[in-house]
Amino acid sequence: MKTRYTFGGDEHIYVEIDEEMSLDAFFKSLSMSNAVKDANIDGVTEICPANASFQVKFNPDVIHPNDLLERIKMLEEKAVQAEKRLNTRIIEIPVYYQDPWTHETLMRFRERHQDPNGTDLEYAAQINGFDSVDDFITAHHSQPWFVSMVGFVSGLPFLYQLVERDKQLQVPKYLRPRTDTPKLTVGYGGCFSCIYSVRGAGGYQMFGITPMPIYDPEQKVTYLQDFMVLFRPGDIVKWRPIDRAEYDAICQQVEDGTYMPKMAEVEFDLDIFNQDIAKTNARLMEALNGA
């Protein structure tokens, strides 16, 4: 990992922790961006952590860009030594794979896709060496995921799977982005899964849909009344496959204000995870099942 510092115009400093994605890069980015936040530097207005990078927005009338750059660089040492441990939560997200709505949408935009004759899931299964779509879906939901970034649009989480590099699923984005994606589509691009928080344009492959809102500007959804955005970087997600009947039932519960997502408080330690991935994941899912 080699940290690279650069300016985004006269109001942003962009820090790339690593060119490639890894949990190590994510943890360093998160500790460094937290260190910048804790330093309470005058003139800093926004701090945005991303997958393997972060960005600081500032007011150059208050602090000179070069002075801020030096302050941030000094925090790198501290971040390297920080414990790679998070007190976070694991959240279960029900997913209706191969649902009719993303299917209709992917057929509508077929000419923008690498494989005009199949579906997004058939294509993803094939290029990742799976014999069937079902096997691919199992690989997608059997191990938990880490929210490594929240953004793009309103509260959209980017998720990175907690498995060895050689087990990571990788899928290219659409050749040309779609102009439409159903709200709450579970998507995939590069090595990241995502949930489209709102309806709109998108370039990720579409695998399914969740009945569980993750963004509610009106704050009517029971579990979004405190804040309109569900996810924070560092959250852990476990997908749970559901069928149409359960999808409809959960939609109704959300509508009635009786749905509460299944979640549990957990601690995640990157060093322990790297020592034994299977055991760490088993412990995470145990915490969720006990919730």
């Binding site: 962009y14 994605m21 890894s22 997958n51 960005q55 984005k173």
Partner: peptide, 18 residues
């Protein structure tokens, strides 16, 4: 780089500046 996507204009998803 791993996770970036295959097009040379792709990067591992990061923050955008205004």
């Amino acid at each position: 780089p791993f996770g970036a996507g295959s097009d040379p204009s792709n990067i591992v998803d990061g923050c955008y500046s205004y």
